[in-house]
């Protein structure tokens, strides 16, 4: 078996293969469901119902999608310039810490002033956190995959230290959690009584802004040029290192917004389980979206829907909700293969 490049991929292939990818994902997941002793039709029906079967389910899915949009955008921006930011998880927590520091009464300001201030501070915190690895990469050629990944672990332990120390809620009955945000520091809910909050609107706005930046501005042009071919970018007079630095600040800031939005919109305080790996899932989201900022919104909702739907399904059908992880992982793998197949032709022998 060998691969031959296809000169110009056909439009049909670029629709057919991704559709096939989803089909393969469903088929393989069905086999696993069968192994778990349930009917795939029932299970997938329940997943669909749990993800989008009611207004409640849909809002839950969008709520879950919100942090994934931010981290997905962060990864998409960085990967587009070939800056391998694996540290969205840490940047998310950086944003969350700043949100708690500023939002628990330290700044007694009205919401119209306080919220923008917190957003700006969160962006700054995330940007600074990715600036370190970016400088190391640019100056000393240190692999940012390693540094950003390791900072994730440092950050989780750092949060743990804060929650057992200076940020610990004195009224928290000894639990490692921060104080609640003051009312002016909270993002309002979109519909009263539902969990969906204005963080989602912020996420959509961010996606549009990122799309405009990538598509319409000189910065986005530089980032794409550096990502596709740094050598040619340098030759054309693009300051490659400066572009990488800007990319790092941009990406880190976006990831930190996930932390801000989760604390100020949903949880109200900082705990150690703020993120069930949203930073890492952001990589999946961005890859599924082929790094397209608007595609990130779609793929974040897709991934969130599978997780939310699988939770509901596992309560009803008794199939472990881990099937959601399997499905997301399968979707990514098959999609990668599908993309390759649109560009290469497989020759047997």
């Amino acid at each position: 078996m060998r691969l031959e490049p296809v000169v110009s991929p056909s439009a049909l292939a670029s629709i057919l293969y991704p559709a096939g990818a989803i089909l393969v994902t469903v088929v393989i997941a069905s086999l696993l469901v069968l192994v778990a002793g349930a009917s795939p039709f029932t299970v997938f029906g329940l997943v669909l119902k749990g993800a989008a079967g009611s207004q409640f389910a849909l809002m839950e899915t969008l709520t879950r999608a919100t942090p994934l949009i931010f981290t997905g955008l962060a990864v998409a921006v960085a990967f587009r310039a070939r800056l391998w930011n694996i540290g969205a998880e840490a940047q998310l927590y950086a944003g969350a810490i700043i949100t708690v520091v500023l939002g628990t009464g330290a700044l007694p300001l009205p919401a119209v002033v306080l919220l923008p201030l917190m957003i700006a501070a969160a962006i700054l915190a995330g940007a600074m956190l990715l600036a370190g690895p970016a400088v190391l990469k640019i100056r000393f050629g240190v692999d940012e995959v390693v540094t950003t990944l390791l900072i994730n672990f440092i950050m989780v332990l750092f949060v743990s230290m804060l929650l057992e120390g200076v940020l610990k809620d004195p009224m928290g009955l000894g639990w490692p959690q921060s104080q609640k945000l003051i009312a002016d520091a909270r993002l309002p809910r979109i519909v009263t009584g539902r969990r969906l909050h204005y963080g989602f609107v912020l996420a959509i706005l961010s996606a549009v802004v990122v799309w405009i930046v990538m598509k319409k501005t000189t910065l986005g042009f530089e980032m794409r040029a550096v990502g596709h071919n740094p050598e040619a970018a340098r030759f054309a007079g693009i300051p490659v290192n400066r572009v990488l630095m800007k990319t790092a600040l941009f990406s880190g800031g976006l990831a930190a917004l996930a932390g801000f939005s989760e604390v100020a919109g949903l949880k109200g305080n900082l705990t150690l389980d703020l993120s069930p790996g949203y930073g890492y899932s952001g990589i999946v989201v961005a890859m599924l979206a082929l790094l397209n900022p608007l595609g990130v919104v779609v793929s974040a909702i897709f991934v969130a829907g599978i997780f939310v739907g699988a939770d509901a399904m596992s309560r009803a059908a008794g199939v472990p909700s881990y099937i959601a992880d399997v499905m997301v992982a399968l979707a990514l793998l098959t999609m990668v293969v599908a993309i390759m197949l649109t560009r290469y032709r497989v020759r047997w022998r």
Binding site: K216, T217, L219, H228, N229, A232, A233, A236, G237
Partner: peptide
């Protein structure tokens, strides 16, 4: 050239910052 960018983007690659191709940061 940058293979995955368009012909228009490639021919403007050396001059994208000039007022001819961009204004206050927008292409």
């Amino acid at each position: 050239t940058i293979g995955d960018m368009t012909i228009a983007e490639n021919v403007a690659l050396e001059a994208y910052r000039s007022p001819r191709f961009s204004k206050s940061g927008f292409l």
